[in-house]
Amino acid sequence: MRKQLMKGNEAIVKSAILAGCRAFYGYPITPASEITEAAALYMPQTGGVFLQAESEVAAINMLYGASSVGVRCMTASSGPGISLMQEGISYMAGAELPCVIADITRGGPGLGNIASEQGDYHQVVKGGGNGNYRTIVLAPYSVQEMADLTALAFELADRYRNPVVILADGFVGQMMEPVEFAEKATLPRLPEWAVAGTEESRANMITSLHMGTDDLEAHENALEAKYRQAERNETRAEHWYTDDAEIVLVGYGIIGRILKAVTADARAMGINVGLLRPITLYPFPTLHFQRLARRARSFVVVEMSNGQMLEDVRLALNGACPVEFLSRVGGNVPSHEDVLKFVLAHARRLAEQEQMAHV
């Protein structure tokens, strides 16, 4: 299939339609607005529904209704809008309703600015709504992955009957690259659990309300079993030159691209550096870290946040290796030169420590 040149935000919509999505409800916000614009253009052409809601609160509740009747549906926003959706996301997780939510992150907290940041990690990976629930979170680092992971997001949403978030920084949403889409589209189908207004679906019940304490406990235990299954089967990460890496660089989204260039430069200087790029932020690829820790001397985490993923890296390693951290916030991106300088200084310190140990 011929590749198409487009923004990451547009790639999400085209891939969603090919994945059987037939309803989009959203409210435009920079740097995610092109998703709403593309959905307005393409969704009606496929017999689908596009509606610009009056707010993000309305949009997420429209998803609740659409998903309840078995329609593959999605929305998109950025940090402030995702904050407004958190109650609805909790309701959908509690009611076991699949949907896809694209979060194209901007600077925060509050209104922040419209530059790219990675400060939404906690609110989507840890869950910003009430109760014991999780959302599956996928982190693309290219426009091609915006398309590929969107298709995967709909598969996982249906498989686990749960909201799935595509967490992409503004750089990936706004950049243009060639994209190749799936040659075969997925046709919409009605799931057996849906409330479809038919005699067959009359007994189906969609709710997150369980008044009895034992009933709610049983429901939460069932949700937890589902999340444990996802942790066993759905973790994804990219390894690049990690087989002999003594220093493992860690970053997701646009940072992963910078770290690849740094890895190549460091290797050219004779330093055994590798890259571990988490693709699923939940479930977090804990075992990938633990396997690399058997050989690596240290990990270097780079984020456009104040260290939100850093916490999960430290938990995954559980003290098996030291972890260094480099960040920029406010919409600033760590430059290739700054990261390389940081890595080289760290490598020198490791070499000095090794020399001291042999004295």
Rank of each mutant, 00 (worst) to 15 (best):
V143S: 00
A264T: 15
V143Y: 01
V250K: 04
T280L: 09
G79T: 10
E199K: 12
V359P: 08
L167A: 02
F325L: 06
R232C: 04
Y160I: 00
G26K: 01
E177G: 06
E177R: 07
C99R: 04
P278Q: 08
L326F: 13
A316G: 00
L259C: 12
A194V: 04
N130E: 13
H358V: 15
V125D: 01
Y160E: 03
T30I: 04
Y64G: 00
S335K: 08
G79P: 02
A182I: 11
N221F: 13
D312Q: 13
L152M: 11
E192L: 10
I12W: 12
T186D: 13
F171W: 11
Q118R: 05
L138K: 04
L326N: 04
A182C: 09
M175V: 15
S327L: 06
L5Q: 11
A320F: 00
L350G: 02
V250Y: 07
T75Y: 07
Q308F: 04
Q52N: 05
P283D: 09
R106N: 06
E180Y: 10
G81P: 04
N306Q: 14
A19G: 04
V100E: 07
L156Q: 09
A59Y: 01
L249K: 02
G47I: 02
N272S: 15
I82C: 09
I258R: 00
L138D: 02
D148P: 01
V179C: 10
S142L: 08
E180N: 11
L310V: 09
V13Y: 05
I104C: 12
M356E: 15
Y121R: 09
D265S: 11
L281E: 08
D338L: 12
V179R: 03
S142Q: 08
V165Q: 03
G131V: 11
F289A: 06
W193M: 07
P163Q: 03
A38M: 11
S335R: 08
Q353Y: 11
G331Q: 08
A102D: 05
N113F: 09
Q174P: 01
L287M: 13
M205W: 12
A225F: 02
S298F: 01
H358K: 15
A19L: 06
L63Y: 05
A225P: 03
M176C: 15
H336A: 04
T207G: 04
G81E: 05
L167F: 13
A182S: 14
G112L: 01
I29K: 00
F325N: 06
D148H: 03
V301S: 07
E145Q: 14
A66P: 03
L315Y: 14
L18S: 11
Q229E: 12
A225H: 07
Q229Y: 05
L317H: 02
T30R: 01
K14A: 03
S201K: 06
R159N: 01
V333K: 11
E96H: 04
E192Q: 11
M309K: 06
G251S: 07
A194Y: 07
E117C: 08
G256R: 04
E183R: 15
A39G: 05
E311T: 13
K14Q: 13
A245D: 09
T280E: 05
T213N: 11
S90T: 10
G48K: 09
F342Q: 06
G88C: 07
S201R: 05
T213C: 08
A185V: 14
